[in-house]
Design a binder for these strands. Structure first.
Lengths: 358, 358
DNA sequence: GTGAAAGCGCTAACAT
DNA sequence: ATGTTAGCGCTTTCAC
């Protein structure tokens, strides 16, 4: 008995037309808001629409129009807060302009990214918001260029000669982290990251390094990065600490690194910030409720999304100016995971100390 | 200079036809894999397709077909790991069958949920995977029924008289949690939740309560739920502890509750599991790297997604059997946040104790 | 085996 | 101010 009620044909524009006693063209005009229609007829159309429960078929409508009112969004993954809220934001912004957002996950694969892009091209989307797996020089951006697609590149990009780009200002944010750590007296800092070839991750590293060295030329900065996945990063980190290295602070250039660092600390029974300080690029909801709360760089998701959509629609509407490269400022949230080196256990907002009941 | 290369018309099936010296109908047949075409002509078609870089326009194709090869997915949010991986899974499964998944977020609003559904109806999607904001009795499911849409309901549902449903077996998982907590000697347990009217959350509560009482009839179970959002839950919890209530364990029926509980513990300087034990429904990546690691009920995302798609496509292909209600088993992951009451600080895998370097 | 013809539901010229 | 005509790009009878 489920779902078997005959799904009879939905009313088409012609049904409305005949019920209203006008032509389909007139119905179309009324619904498009053309004002040159006789008010009486317009009213009859509205009545018929109401009575039949008519709604325009957006696909049929797009079929006839020059450009389809669909925006494609390609994210490396959907599982993280960052990309999850990015999609939510983009969806809202697309809707506001009467477009539908079709989102797809490249699952951190450049091959898949290109395939998805091809599929979106088949769909003849009006534009694409691409958060590339690696950077602006991947095969996906090349595909977009080759096929004359309109698009914006976001997140893991800095600038491009063909597309507008929008991303967090990694360099500035990292410099800010450096100021805070150096200011707290740290002089041996480990930076961990993934995919060093991504321009943004490099910017995060360089922003940190340059500012740190400027403030304290004798600071020791160790760097551990891993190209591919998170597993080798974990083992490198394990080796590093296993060799007896004891930096007083760790700066993780990406969320997964922060998790790895935390779990390695745990494994060794180290606590933040007494035994070691920790800051991560990318914030997450849980970071403010764990004990200690984890300091993090917060990326301006809303601004990135809205700027990206602004630029994209400018292009969709035909603007052909030179591509722009936007960097949106981040916020650095200092939390309890950062202390001063050598101040020992139970000193820096440390363990089992009663926090203020604010 | 960006994006201005004239995006010349893409080759249509007629272009392929003329290049191959056959009719559009034949091209269509070849591409559809019809075998009754003369091999020689088929080859010429493939050649032309190759030379022109032709790809069928899926929308135009769907236009003519009876049913469009689009599946809609509506999730309450995209920001959590659970729904993020759900979308990823669904996307893959839809693709496998040659369908495109169009996902949308209802942002925890039933009003928006219904609007999105209407839009998907406009799109004439072949089917919908709906994860309703509240439960199977909301306006969205009613809309689907009223319009004869095909669909599956997942996650916050138990069973329905019109649609197949797939969700985690909340009842059984909660009973398992009860066994573990009671087994550890807890006799005063606080259960916290949101949206008590959601059938699944009620199942989580009842599964826990019935099993706990069966094992220890004198167990004290306090329940704090809040209808709307997370803020009132937080203040109720604050009041509760403020009154001097001191359960030895907290079971949170949903992820956000786990975060609230943790942050309230923090605020009071309590540590798990020495001061209080904690288990949460819904696992998250960070829970295994914090100290202590948080015990959690893991929902079988992949199974739910794949079962949902199986059922959905059965309907899409015309099956009209009675609706089924599937419950997929969860896994309960005990972690360090759970200890035994009264065993005091530093006893139950507690603070600053060196964990084994496994 | 293959192609001509007829649309899917809509909109944009062009007449009137 | 409105209707007629001609498609958008494709698939599908149904003749040949």
């Amino acid at each position: 008995m489920a779902q078997q009620e005959a799904r009879q044909r939905r009313p088409s524009i012609h049904d409305v037309a005949s019920h209203a006693g006008v032509s389909a063209a007139t119905v179309s005009k009324v619904l498009a808001g053309v004002t040159t229609v006789k008010p009486e007829n317009a009213q009859r159309v509205f009545d018929a629409v109401e009575r039949l429960g008519y709604r325009v078929d957006p696909l049929a409508s797009d079929m006839r129009r020059a450009k389809r009112r669909i925006i494609g969004a390609i994210m490396p993954e959907f599982e993280s807060e960052f990309f999850g809220s990015m999609v939510t934001e983009l969806e809202g912004l697309a809707e506001q302009r009467g477009y539908t957002l079709v989102a797809a996950s490249s699952r951190e694969s450049e091959a898949r990214e290109k395939e998805i892009l091809a599929r979106m091209h088949d769909w003849r989307v009006a534009g694409v918001v691409l958060a590339p797996v690696r950077n602006e020089h991947g095969p996906a951006a090349a595909f977009m260029k080759a096929h004359g697609m309109t698009g914006v590149l976001i997140d893991r990009v800095l600038s491009d000669d063909a597309f507008d780009t929008v991303s967090a200002d990694s360099f500035a944010a990292s410099a800010e982290v450096a100021r805070m750590l150096i200011g707290n007296g740290h002089s041996h800092i480990l930076v961990i990251g993934l995919a060093e070839q991504a321009a943004t991750v490099r910017a995060r590293l360089e922003g940190f390094r340059s500012q740190a060295l400027a403030l304290n030329p004798s600071v020791r900065i160790d760097v551990i990065t891993s190209e591919v996945s998170v597993a080798p990063l974990r083992s490198s980190l394990r080796d590093y600490f296993g060799r007896g290295e004891r930096p007083t602070a760790v700066y993780s250039l990406l969320l997964k690194g922060t998790l790895v660092a935390l779990s390695e600390f745990r494994r060794r029974g180290w606590h933040c910030p007494d035994d070691i300080s920790l800051v991560g690029f990318d914030d997450a909801e849980w970071m403010q409720v764990t004990w200690p709360a984890i300091a993090a760089v917060v990326q301006p998701v809303r601004q990135i999304a809205s700027e990206a959509m602004n630029l994209l629609f400018r292009r969709v509407e035909g603007d052909a100016g030179p591509p722009t490269a936007r960097l949106e400022p981040c916020q650095v949230l200092m939390r309890e995971s950062v202390g001063s080196p050598g101040s020992g256990p139970h000193s820096g907002g440390g363990d089992r100390q009663q926090p203020p009941l604010s």
